[in-house]
Amino acid sequence: MSSKEKPTLGGTRIKTRKRNIAAPLDPAAFADVVVQIYLDNDGDLELVAKNVESSDLNFSRYGDTFFEVAFTGGRTQPGTIKPDEGERHPYSIIECEANREAILPSVIYENERKKLAIFTALAFSQKLSGLPPEAVFQPLLKDNLVGKGLVLPFITDFFKEYLVDNSLEDLISILKRGKMEDNLMEFFPSAKRSAEGFSEHFT
Rank of each mutant, 00 (worst) to 15 (best):
I37T: 05
V35T: 02
T120K: 08
P24T: 08
I118T: 11
A102F: 08
G11Q: 13
N41I: 01
N41A: 03
D143Y: 00
D165V: 04
L57H: 05
S199I: 14
T156K: 14
P27Y: 00
N166T: 06
H201W: 15
S194Q: 14
A70H: 06
P78D: 12
A22F: 09
T12W: 03
N20F: 13
S125E: 12
E112T: 04
P133Q: 04
I81S: 13
D165H: 04
R75V: 05
A135L: 07
L150T: 00
D165F: 05
P83T: 07
I81V: 15
L104M: 04
S54F: 05
R177K: 04
R75N: 13
F187T: 08
K192Y: 11
L57D: 01
S92F: 07
S55M: 00
N144D: 15
D84W: 14
S106H: 04
L104G: 03
I93H: 10
K142G: 11
R75M: 15
F159W: 15
A102N: 08
K148D: 13
F187C: 10
L57G: 03
S129D: 10
N58T: 00
T80H: 11
V52A: 07
V164S: 09
K148N: 13
K18I: 03
Y162R: 13
A31N: 08
I155Q: 13
D56M: 06
L141S: 06
T80P: 04
Q138H: 02
N166I: 03
G149C: 14
I172Y: 12
T72L: 10
A28I: 07
S199L: 14
L122R: 02
K15M: 11
A135V: 09
L184G: 15
K160P: 08
F59D: 09
